[in-house]
């Protein structure tokens, strides 16, 4: 495994060049950075994790909620709320009729592939392209609201942005979807943004995190 690099696969993360020094594992036909020289302590402090290769999908239409329910996934009651399934998938409700589902590290996103195999309702439910249109990175640790306050004009402190809340907003002047969740007790903001701007946002966030001792982490830091 140690000789594996992101370029060993035809599916590549949008920021794989920023991950020098990582150890990688094969996830969903791509390379996921699992370990750097830091670990859980860094994730608790301030970490930046690239989850681009982890599967995710989305559905839009008046029958999208029905499609998710049929697949056994939870359906958040209101827009801009997220719920976690028992298996660890995050279901994001972005509007009355748009949902994204983010895969879980527990099964390396296998459940998403299964979901994508399910036949869609014959009308009014369209699969979305968020695996490719959007980049997925996760900001972790104790200083999340303070870090985001350096790039984003929305108050993301606990009192106004609780676990399970979603903000569709602008960060570092690009459109982002920010989800507040938790992995194994570590506070996380998962950020989905234009995949073509992935390297830009990566650099902007690392710069914002420096003040809080932030570093790039691997997925095992959340284990």
């Amino acid at each position: 495994m140690s000789t594996m690099t992101p370029e060993s696969f035809s599916k590549r993360s949008f920021v794989y060049r920023q991950l020098a020094g990582a150890e990688f594992a094969e996830v969903a036909g791509g390379a996921l950075a699992t370990d750097f020289k830091n670990g859980r302590a860094q994730a608790e402090k301030s970490g930046l994790l690239d989850l681009s290769v982890l599967p995710r999908t989305g559905f839009r239409g008046s029958r999208a909620a029905e499609h998710l329910k049929a697949a056994g996934l939870p359906v958040p009651a209101k827009p801009n709320q997220a719920e976690q399934s028992a298996n660890g998938e995050l279901v994001l409700r972005l509007s009355m009729k748009e949902f994204w589902v983010l895969g879980s590290l527990a099964d390396n996103g296998a459940a998403i592939d299964a979901l994508n195999q399910r036949p869609l309702p014959d009308s009014d439910c369209y699969a979305l392209y968020c695996q490719d249109s959007h980049n997925w990175i996760t900001l972790t640790g104790a200083a999340l609201p303070e870090t985001m306050a350096k790039v984003c004009g929305v108050d993301l402190r606990e009192a106004s942005f609780a676990r399970g809340a979603i903000a569709q907003t602008s960060a570092a002047r690009i459109n982002v979807i920010v989800v507040n969740h938790e992995v194994k007790g570590i506070p996380c903001f998962s950020i989905l943004s234009d995949s073509a701007s992935a390297e830009y946002l990566w650099e902007s966030l690392l710069d914002a995190m420096a003040e809080f001792g932030g570093e790039v982490i691997g997925s095992n830091a959340l284990a």
Binding site: K150, D194, S204
Partner: peptide
Amino acid sequence: GRIFDPYRRTAMHHRHKEMGAKMMPAGNW
């Protein structure tokens, strides 16, 4: 100080650089 100037890169961006491309802006791209 710390003004945000977003840029967009295609998936092939770094290959162009490696092949000696002279890059030009096209909007944010």
